Amino acid sequence: MAETPHHVGHRGRLRQRLMAAGPDAMPDYELLELVLFSAQPRRDMKPLAKTLLARFGSFAGVIAAPPALLAEVEGVGDGVIATFKVVQAAALRLARDEVMARPVIGSWTKLLAYCRASMAHEANEHFRVLFLNRRNELIADEVQQRGTVDHTPVYPREVVKRALELGATAVIMVHNHPSGDPTPSAADIAMTREVKEAGEKLGIQLHDHVIIGRRGHNSFKTLGLL
């Protein structure tokens, strides 16, 4: 008789553990296996899961990796990439719904989690603005600019203009450092001051500027730079 593949029944056992203990009880490679099952219904996914984690560093790093880089990994095709991007989109929408139309002060931790999920793994700099109303509720979240690996052009007048169009009275600026280091640069500090001064002239307050990196984040307000 042919030898039974070792992974027969493995999928069922993983699903049972997920339902019984929850995702927090599972290591990254097993959670990634569960995601891969829907894209590859008849293969042992453990080797591919471990290969992906070795390449991209973490479950989040794999899910957020650019499609072109994912495609370089043997065994990753369009179906796997599409599955990862669906998971990423679902996670971002869930995180976004946790912070929209809610006071920022009471949901700051969730807001940072959303920004990290959205930007920490981007290969290029993204500059986004969170627009707040008089009750400090988040009314809009928009990516204003996309740049290179180390530079994003920011135009203070455009930030203020968009705030006025939305009826916002305050903004929080957020951008990522693809290098992973969230330390503000001299250019970051100068640009922040320009936006702050432009907004103050028209009654738009700059609450904070947060820099997101894979190794954490930095707040201008916390650093005493704002």
Rank of each mutant, 00 (worst) to 15 (best):
K50D: 07
T51E: 07
T51Y: 00
T51P: 01
L52S: 03
L53M: 04
L53Q: 03
A54P: 10
A54R: 11
A54W: 00
A54D: 11
A54S: 10
R55I: 00
R55V: 03
F56G: 04
F56Q: 04
F56K: 04
G57S: 05
F59M: 04
F59R: 05
A60R: 09
V62R: 08
V62N: 10
I63Y: 14
A64Q: 13
P66R: 12
P67D: 14
A68G: 02
L69M: 12
L69K: 13
A71I: 05
A71D: 12
E72V: 06
E72W: 02
E72G: 03
V73P: 00
G75K: 04
G75N: 05
G75I: 03
V76P: 08
V76W: 01
G77V: 03
G77Q: 03
G77M: 02
D78L: 14
D78P: 11
G79Q: 11
G79A: 09
V80Q: 12
V80N: 05
I81K: 12
I81N: 08
A82Y: 12
A82S: 12
T83R: 15
F84C: 14
F84E: 09
K85M: 14
K85G: 08
K85W: 04
V86H: 01
V87L: 14
Q88K: 15
Q88M: 14
Q88V: 13
A89M: 11
A90K: 07
A90P: 00
A91Y: 15
A91L: 13
A91P: 15
R93M: 09
R93N: 10
L94M: 12
L94G: 14
R96V: 03
D97Q: 14
D97E: 15
E98A: 14
V99P: 13
M100Q: 13
M100N: 09
A101V: 13
A101H: 15
A101N: 15
A101P: 01
R102V: 06
R102L: 09
R102I: 02
R102G: 01
P103V: 13
P103R: 11
P103A: 12
V104M: 10
I105D: 15
G106V: 04
G106P: 13
G106S: 06
S107V: 07
W108E: 08
W108H: 02
W108M: 10
W108N: 03
T109D: 11
T109K: 06
K110Q: 10
L111D: 00
L112M: 05
A113G: 07
A113V: 03
A113D: 03
A113P: 00
A113R: 08
Y114M: 06
C115W: 08
R116Y: 03
R116C: 00
A117Y: 09
A117W: 08
A117D: 02
S118A: 11
M119V: 04
M119P: 01
M119W: 07
M119D: 08
A120S: 07
A120V: 06
H121F: 12
H121T: 05
H121G: 01
E122Q: 06
A123Y: 00
A123H: 05
A123K: 09
